Computed example of a mutant assay.
Amino acid sequence: MSALHIERSNLKIGEHPTGLPLEVPVITLTGPADGPTVYIQANIHGAEIQGNAVIHHLLEAFKANPPAGKITLVPLANPIGINHKNGEFTLGRFDPVTGVNWNRQYHFDGALLDGFVAELTEASDEAIRQQFRAQLRAQINQRLDNPWGLTVGQNLCLRLQRMAVEADIVLDLHTGPVSARHLYVPSYTRERARHFNIPLNILMPSDFDGALDEACFSPWWQLSERFAAQGRALPVMVDAFTLELGSQEWLNVEDAKQDAAGILNYLQHQGLWSHCADPLPYTLTLQTQYACELSDYKALYSPSGGQVEFLAPLCEPVPAGQPLARLWHFNQLGLTPDNGLYQALALPCNAIPVLHFASASVQQGTELYKVLTNTFAL
């Protein structure tokens, strides 16, 4: 079997106040044959560490069965967020200076599409791919060269995005607060998204809202839509997904094998091992897969403050009217009969709970649960 070439480097994404560099590890694998370009990162949010274990298993699988193409692996993608601690908790979801979500600071300006389609109406698909990728690359570089400078988060995300923009497949590994495994699926990838074998799926439109997956698929999807409006069918040339791999502040290296298995299964269907017949070193246990549209992915907010008892198991259907939680009001002890100390919280429709808040102590307006509604088989 031909060898897999592996390089390890560090990407500078900023500097500490002391002047010491902030760096992110980057592992680049070049396979023995031509194939897709893949970019996989984990831990852009500081408490979401399980994706690093998945990258560990992926690297071992790639060593055992060298894939075609080029793969870039970026564990520990945000050293600032990872080190943002308060006591025993990791707070690294938001930039502590600006308050902006770390995963909402990538860049795409849709004005890039204006005029591009008209100039390349007669060009081949491959020429369009190359020229559009060059335009996206230039847009990121121009943003990085802003004479007014950038925030810490913008600088971090744009340097990561500059690697991701070169890829045909982008996978961003996350976790939720207390969460079941779920997948954000661009609607055009619905059929092949099944290969990840993730039980809960949210189908997304072509909008861009600052996340890495959107920054990678939205430009290509919108390009395809522009060509379609001109009467030409152009495939969406990049797949990008956000994979939510369970709960934050939790690491289980053994459990990470099932997510690595799903990713490898997807990559195998994308042609990374078409050059060889060796079986991949994993066993995939097939899951029942539910899905809903992003507009039907709903949040339940706490109607008042108190202490919440989460009742509904994640990833299991809950019928309308069945309580998801009890909201206790212990401030009423001694003033209210016991049966008045809590209120049951239910939904007006059938739903499948995806995640819930990490703390049992909540304010009015806290997002208690997120659920799939109007579900269907993926």
Rank of each mutant, 00 (worst) to 15 (best):
E191V: 12
S274T: 13
H195R: 15
K257V: 10
F196R: 10
V238C: 15
D207V: 10
D255I: 09
Q230G: 12
S206A: 14
N265V: 09
E225K: 13
H275N: 10
D259T: 13
G210K: 05
L272Q: 02
L203A: 09
D207W: 11
E249W: 14
S206D: 15
M204H: 08
Y282W: 01
L212D: 06
L245V: 03
L280R: 02
W250P: 14
Q270G: 07
A240G: 07
S206M: 10
D255S: 14
M237D: 06
N252P: 02
Q248L: 07
Y266R: 07
L243I: 05
I198S: 03
R232F: 01
D259M: 13
L272P: 02
E249G: 13
G231W: 02
E244D: 06
A215Q: 02
L267G: 06
L212T: 05
D207C: 14
K257I: 06
S206F: 12
L234T: 02
F241C: 12
S247R: 03
A260Y: 02
C216E: 09
Y282A: 11
P279Q: 03
A228P: 07
F227N: 01
D255G: 15
Q270I: 05
A228S: 01
N265G: 14
Q222N: 08
S218E: 04
F227L: 03
W221M: 14
H195Y: 11
Y282P: 00
M204R: 06
Q230I: 13
H195S: 12
A193M: 04
L203C: 02
G231P: 00
V236F: 05
V238K: 15
A261Q: 09
Y266V: 06
I202C: 07
N201Y: 01
S218V: 03
L203Y: 10
V238D: 14
F208T: 04
L280W: 02
P279V: 13
F196Y: 08
P281G: 07
F196C: 06
A211S: 15
E225C: 08
L245H: 00
S206K: 11
A211D: 15
F227Q: 00
P235A: 07
Q230H: 14
C216G: 10
Y266M: 11
P279C: 09
A211P: 08
G271N: 08
A277N: 13
E191M: 13
D209R: 15
R226G: 04
W220M: 02
A228I: 04
L251E: 15
L243G: 10
E254N: 12
H195E: 11
P235K: 00
Q222G: 08
W273P: 05
F217C: 04
L234M: 04
Q270P: 07
A229C: 12
F241R: 13
L280G: 02
G231Y: 00
L223R: 03
S206W: 11
D209M: 15
D213F: 02
P279A: 07
